[in-house]
Amino acid sequence: MKINTWFGVLEIGSKGEVLASDSFPKDIRELALRSLSLRDSRQNLPPEGFDLKAAAIECKFVDSLSEYYSLLHEVTLEAAKHQVSEALTPDQRIVQAVEALDDINETTNSLSERLFEWYGGYFPESGLNGEALALFIVKYGSRENVAPDDPLYLKARDSMGAKLEAADEVLLKGFAENVCSLYERRKQIEAYIESSMEILAPNLTITAGPMLGARLISIAGSLEKLAAFPSSTIQVIGASKALFKHLRERAPSPKHGIIYSHPLVNTSPWWVRGKVARALAAKLSLAARIDFYSGKIDPSLPEKLEEKIQKIRALNPRPPQKRPESGAKPKKKRRK
């Protein structure tokens, strides 16, 4: 019978003896790629318990066991490296970018707060914070330098803040520059995510918006995984704490995870949000599937979603009699 091995194609007899062989050239890269191509072929597998190394010597692919092992070591390494590099697919790049964005946001917020506190001692009346404050400090440093045509000129002149000494001004300006560049970096990453999402997942992008879409992919782990999720899972992605609590302690099931940030959900009246979230999740699931399997854009998706949501709102114009208390709510029966 014919069998495939990493070093060649063999014809073996009933006792596993090699009858004929066609061994491959001893080129590490070639052997590695060939070996990878054999992964999914269900055909011509060696019989159970077949001694590959003995066969490799028998068919003179190698002269010794040590040569066999050292070649196999190189080949498996090369193949694994190849697979690892292939694993960095476009969706994985987006996942990395989303995670970097989260880190940058966290850092930017804490540095901005620090800057606000610090500069507040010198010009508490500025009314600025975040990026605007950082830009202001980079531009002027001490409030004494504020130009007469600047809207903050009078406030700066009459401020109760302390005098900013030169040494402190250098520090603060440098710090503010760092904060500004973090804001810049944030915009750059957001732009990267938006343009990558349009290419990788156009349907998700038009239905969820690029950032929410990217976050869904990031939490799912990949576009493939997101496409495989049932829409009930997509509905609560990002609410894992509440979900586990629900599973463990019979707490009420969460109605929405990060899809809450979608305008269609968070602008809906509270009594339809659960329904809206469910409808949105169903469309997102569909969008992710089209993106993963065909990649063709279906421009009608957002409209259809919008229609569906309008219908839900129209059918539920008023809040139910009693607002359900969160906590001790009995499990709702599914109404047809």
């Binding site: 069998i3 054999l38 597998l45 060696p46 077949f50 590959l52």
Partner: peptide, 10 residues
């Protein structure tokens, strides 16, 4: 395991 049967010995 079939996916590495062409590599792994007994």
């Amino acid at each position: 395991p079939d996916s590495y049967a062409h590599i792994v010995e007994p």
